[in-house]
Design a protein around this nucleic acid. Sequence first.
DNA 1: TACGTTCTACGATAACTCTAGTAGGAAGTC
DNA 2: GACTTCCTACTAGAGTTATCGTAGAACGTA
Lengths: 129, 129
Amino acid sequence: MDQVSFTERELDVMAVLWERGPCTVAEVREALVDDLAYTTVLTVLRTLETKGHVSHEEQGKAHRYTPLVAREAAGTSALRRIVDKIFGGSRELLLTNLVDGRGVDDEELRRLRAVLNQRLGDGGSAHDR
Amino acid sequence: MDQVSFTERELDVMAVLWERGPCTVAEVREALVDDLAYTTVLTVLRTLETKGHVSHEEQGKAHRYTPLVAREAAGTSALRRIVDKIFGGSRELLLTNLVDGRGVDDEELRRLRAVLNQRLGDGGSAHDR
DNA sequence: TACGTTCTACGATAACTCTAGTAGGAAGTC
DNA sequence: GACTTCCTACTAGAGTTATCGTAGAACGTA
């Protein structure tokens, strides 16, 4: 149960890997919004590898990088941090903030509610899949 | 609508200010879990002030620091970042993660659902209070 | 008035982050 | 075989973060 955390740029890169699956340096670079030097992207990936957040395997002469940390784990860490530090431990406050403001229509609110209903329906025990 | 962001330590300090309201250096130091030197805390506060996230006023010979960034604004920034980078833009995925795992009982799930219901009941227009 | 306490101001240092250049290997092309 | 292209390894430098020491002002007290 270790706390995973990423710097801003590392997170950009991880986002690409989570979204697209294993990528080469060139592919990550391509996918990034900011226009970085090839070696910059490589350096970030190597840093991530040093920290144990990604691994790589040879593919031809290039390396293909795979995320070792799942989205979910990173999300759990990040959310815990936010709930604790920003919302004083209140998930309600977080949720309020999440659905506050524009961009969240009734349709989505209902989908979110469905998530909660489903979990409530679980009976609280069936937790695995 | 600027993006507010804090470093780890800055966030620790902001958390204290949000929780307790305006504080002196000594009070912040007292409230922090980690045992830091007085000057360390002072430095963090001064950094935050330089960045415009807190302000201070004299009180006797000490300074009392006040947060200029509201919890909500910091939360919105942080959540946007997480939704986008970690959950691929899906609030549903975020919510699932938020209520997944232990520590969330039915009671709380119902409270969270109430948050959504209330917003749905708003009719979508009445947004202020 | 001399002393201890409580503050701020300033300076400093180590570590980390971010970015990218240069060197050199491998592989295809003419 | 020389040239170009793509890729990694290594190196480097500026900027930021995190932490704290020392100096010195202000104030109460013996």
